[in-house]
Design a binder for these strands. Sequence first.
DNA 1: TAGATTGTTAATCGATTAACAATC
DNA 2: TAGATTGTTAATCGATTAACAATC
Lengths: 210, 210
Amino acid sequence: MPYSGVSNSVIQRLPRYYRFLGDLKASGISRISSKALSERMNLTASQIRQDLNCFGGFGQQGYGYNIDVLREEIGHILGIDAPKKAIIVGMGNLGKALAQHLKFENKGFMLIGLFDIKESLIGQMVRNIPIRSTSNLDEFCRDNKPEVAIITTPKEAAQSLSDQLVKLGVKGFLNFSHYDLTVNHPEITVENIHLGDKLLTLSYRLKEND
Amino acid sequence: MPYSGVSNSVIQRLPRYYRFLGDLKASGISRISSKALSERMNLTASQIRQDLNCFGGFGQQGYGYNIDVLREEIGHILGIDAPKKAIIVGMGNLGKALAQHLKFENKGFMLIGLFDIKESLIGQMVRNIPIRSTSNLDEFCRDNKPEVAIITTPKEAAQSLSDQLVKLGVKGFLNFSHYDLTVNHPEITVENIHLGDKLLTLSYRLKEND
DNA sequence: TAGATTGTTAATCGATTAACAATC
DNA sequence: TAGATTGTTAATCGATTAACAATC
């Protein structure tokens, strides 16, 4: 664990830095100051410098930051250069959308398997990967050892599924189901995404800004 | 704006309270103390009481909180009882997944329109709503006045689309595209959802917990 | 060199936690 | 009444911002 003790708030900002630096790189700019970046990102320059200095001094006085270098460094901090094998369980529309549109390769993951329980989906190809039956999950995991599972099943399926996957050695979950994965497996890494919650905050904010 | 000055952190916890209270209600329990709720939710009892008291005293000393009442109150705070008309623009797999699985009615929204630019999708029915051509967006919005748009298009489309929708009176966005909507419209309410960022934080945490 | 901008320490601000009197 | 638990104030903790010496 190389950078222990870095606060949650900082870590959650890292992917955003990485994204903005990617855009800057794409637009052909090669250097930027914390001030200029802060204006683009709607942060304070101070915060950016503080955040980055949790991991090292990537800038140069009087010059700013080299965009390529900084982006690479943040990518490395995030673990993008250490590809992890991932599977998606639940290949309804959400699973398909994720398989097709998330750029796994650019984010430190290799998508190696897709699973669903529904007969009509099994055998379908998505991104050149066949959808397999969840009944083959045990065998597949023993053979291929995925470290990460993305759960897009209904709540009821998610519980037993996550227990099963943890037993099979899965270490991290991206959880779209309503089931609270952390309950039974405190030692496992989980990112929960509750899309419904976002609708509710939007509803609140609309009232607030009326 | 009835509860101005409530902090961001509190607001972002409200949907989660609402969810847990819904589960408790479904399991037939009728009252709960901040202590008991805190254990279920992995928070401190103190924080729960502080959070709720931003909006009013919904509990009773010596008794705790009535689950039905508290849930209703939070629902009201979130604006669930004031339905807002919403459309989805971009009916690829992600748009379809959201249309089919987000419980709009339970979250203060009415889904009234679906749009895509792709000929092959137009006319398809999802949840009894036809997918319309984005070329009909102007007319549809003038006739139906949606207040909220969910954007699931590629980045390139999102920019002009959001300008167009703001002109047509849309007040809030749920934005899944990589385009940063707030840039051009600071007065508009936006919830950004960057699914890719979640993969990156998961990647970081996996390394951290190895 | 002079100007710019970092890295870093100190000051401020806000959010969380603890404590306890009020009261059901 | 006695026990439980809230609402709320005070204390603590952490995160953000400001300031500035170091230095490219």
